[in-house]
Design a protein around this nucleic acid. Structure first.
Lengths: 183, 183
DNA sequence: GAGCGATGTCAACACTTGTTGGCAAACAGA
DNA sequence: TCTGTTTGCCAACAAGTGTTGACATCGCTC
């Protein structure tokens, strides 16, 4: 079959995200990605240069965090918890980062970048004392990533069983304290 | 050199834990483990049968959780937080499980087992309504594993910078609410 | 010392990996 | 139609993997 170059690139990227999310960086082979995309493995290299660069492109991720500045100050915790359940549940976004950042140093770097570039700036606007912002953002990250890990990667049964409302009711206050609570 | 069979087995196991913790299951090669142990790769197979079985032995892990039943009810949160910082910091225990459980399905299984076998029973003794125990244990796991992940695997700077006292002050109340707080 | 099992090394196997170069077919412009 | 570029496939390479079997060497028992 014959396609436009951009179409196949998109095809490969989608297959790559799928495999990286499911198997992590090492186990996701170029051959498997190419097979899913219905394409020869050599095309992957031709279009992306190397596996490392393919991953870098596939993992260039937007967490699509909400603007917590527009939420009432006493509701930011619930808002973040709700976002965590709603937006990070379906897509491959978080599993990609979690599965790969854990074994691939480059991906861990990317994780730190995503964290510093997308989560931290959001927090700064909320905190009175800017010097506290990094620690508070870090704390929020531990709970957010821990939840995503247990639910979408480890699939711990009780965490998997929690409804949207339960999750918000339990995690909301935690985020609220980390983000806007007293020291 | 010549040793007792048990000595070399122990030597291999220690090297294996080291590499599994640092590199995850896939990247930790038998050759590298053998090199660290100062031994021929074939010995690893001879003593443990296969890489999979070596891992199963190396990952047979005791979290050494404290008996929360002996702690004052309003202090269990702090106690768990303190344990998290003190005991899970140095050893290879948690990094092994985190780095491997994420890409290795067998390890994820083991993680669920460790979780169900060691953490959950501890919680049951604390909770009034036993039907709530699994959810509460799951919540505690999200925060505990999330913290370990951010601190020891991802090495997020602000989380890395937190002192023992800060950590307990922030995480203690979270655990307290998850374990013994109101719904 | 002779025999023997335990301990260890070496070389090789079958396989998978990322990656490369050559070649065929489809398209676009002249 | 001729030419050059794009898109694709195929076969192969070099490197690294887990694993295996043949051979050496130590230490013990008779």
């Amino acid at each position: 079959m014959r396609r436009s170059s951009e179409d196949t690139k998109a095809l490969i990227l989608r297959a790559a995200r799928e495999h990286f999310a499911a198997d992590g960086y090492d186990r996701a082979t170029i051959r498997a990605i190419a097979a899913t995309a219905g394409i020869d493995p050599s095309m992957v290299i031709r279009y992306f240069g190397s596996k490392e660069r393919l991953f870098a492109t596939a993992a260039d991720i937007d967490l699509r965090l909400p603007d917590l500045g527009e939420v009432p100050r006493d509701q930011v915790g619930n808002a973040l918890a709700a976002h965590l359940v709603d937006r990070w549940g379906d897509g491959d976004v978080l599993p990609i980062l979690l599965r790969t950042a854990v074994t691939n140093e480059g991906a861990a770097d990317r994780m730190r970048t995503v964290f510093a570039g997308q989560l931290a700036p959001l927090i700064i606007k909320l905190v009175d004392d800017p010097s506290e912002a990094p620690a508070r953002a870090g704390l929020a990250a531990t709970q957010a990533l821990g939840f995503a890990l247990c639910r979408h990667v480890l699939a711990l049964p009780p965490v998997l069983a929690m409804s949207r409302e339960e999750t918000i009711a339990w995690l909301g206050p935690t985020f609220q304290r980390y983000l806007a609570g007293p020291r």
